[in-house]
Design a protein around this nucleic acid. Structure first.
Lengths: 245, 245
DNA sequence: GCTTTAAGTGTAAATATTACACTTGTAATA
DNA sequence: TATTACAAGTGTAATATTTACACTTAAAGC
């Protein structure tokens, strides 16, 4: 490709992935111990560098795939991070993405491959560089998006129970919800399909399994139907004057 | 700075600014005719390249300042755009920011300096590269943000009337609002200060001028108070499956 | 002083949200 | 096999929020 812009600076561009999962009633992030300098051995998000002939989205998917072996994962760009000294290794612009994965299907691959570990968002260690900031922003973004899009289902198995779903929403928004109101609200959307099967893992009585009706949701979206769940943002972030969203 | 990452590709990083203004009852974007190749003479957003020793935020502010002469402007990062062929001039990653400015104070500087022009968002021309997509995303982001933060005031003069404010909100959300409900809602926040003066530009009777109470708002934010205006997102964007927010 | 124009004002009906407690089914155990 | 323990499942009334709606007021222009 011919460049018309030869006189301008070129930069390293990195991708970092904030990978959310839900397990044992807790929202978790997939973290790993960095295997190279600088900051070798410290906790970090999964990351990598942008190649010449891949888009940001492609690169983010590639990196997620390298770590988890997964593709076709729910993933959204969070933001670009570009402070001059954010990475002591070199001036690097990082574009952060967050991904939602169904832990059950995948935890095997992970731990073995890369020394990756699922850590509860309530017990996050200090992360390298500005990765803690990225994780915090990703959680805020997840909360906001959860209130306007039915993305919780990306974090649960295809078949799930209402108590599981409620627990997930409670983890995301950081507060307890009323069981009856929650069930009423979520069932009213008409987007859940009740199955005959029950899950007996967590109670003697067993809880009915449901599926999310993706087709119905897509047709609702086409018609201009808006999914709205009253998910509060948890605690407000005080004095947040960042130019970043 | 020593680089630990020598083997990775380096990229041009651009900044593009979606600059919103409000004038003559319409929400507008500041566009300019591109003055260099490629795509010389076509409509474009204001942009520039990231330098070695400036952060993304600093660079975005610098570029906005070059065009408008303004600083201390409300500005938020929108997203990074990184398709391989998005700019035919060279592989370039662009980080887009949107800014809200008070047109009245500034329109002089603009037109004269750079052949820039305010164009209604309802009459946008085709823009170069992926700038139309950026503008569309920025408008969506503005709508969402307007519903949870009192940013409309960034687009109005310091002193403004309630009919002006309502007209602005109508432009942003793309539908007409009920006058009494709007006034009730906005006054209930307690964030507007009524002045003794009237503005007589748009009616014989004249409309009272108000100011936004930034201090009070900041103290509310500290206390965890949430600004919430019911601004609908206008029309839903159909089949939006982009990995981008 | 009559007309025109936009500003300004309140209430009742409808809808949405919240708070709240008992019954059911099953497995484990006495 | 009866009892206990546990989480699943279910409905309603009170409250709060949102919506719809129409006339009066002030001042300029004729």
């Amino acid at each position: 490709m011919v460049s018309f812009y030869k006189e301008y600076d070129h930069h390293l561009v990195a991708l970092d992935c904030i990978i959310f999962g839900f397990d044992e009633g807790e929202l978790k992030l997939l973290l790993l111990k960095r295997k190279f300098e600088p900051a070798k051995g410290e906790w970090s998000l999964m990351g990598g560098f942008l190649g010449k002939s891949e888009s940001l989205d492609e690169a983010a998917c590639r990196i997620l795939n390298q770590l988890t072996g997964l593709s076709n994962i729910y993933m959204k760009q969070l933001s670009a991070f570009g402070d001059v000294d954010r990475d002591p290794g070199a001036r690097t612009i990082s574009v952060a993405f967050y991904a939602l994965i169904k832990i059950d299907e995948n935890d095997r691959l992970l731990a073995e491959n890369h020394g990756a570990e699922w850590v509860s968002i309530n017990e996050l260690p200090v992360l390298i560089f500005d990765h803690s900031k990225m994780a915090e922003k990703a959680l805020e973004a997840l909360r906001r998006r959860t209130s306007r899009e039915p993305i919780g289902f990306e974090l649960l198995p295809v078949k799930f129970t209402l108590p599981q779903l409620q627990s997930l929403y409670e983890s995301i928004c950081g507060e307890l919800l009323d069981k009856r109101n929650f069930r009423k609200q979520i069932l009213e959307t008409g987007l859940l399909v009740k199955l005959e099967e029950k899950d007996k893992e967590s109670s003697k009585k067993g809880a009915y399994l449901y599926k999310f009706d993706h087709n119905k949701y897509n047709s609702y979206v086409e018609k201009g139907f808006l999914f709205q769940l009253k998910v509060k943002s948890g605690h407000i972030i005080k004095g947040n004057n960042s130019i970043l969203d």
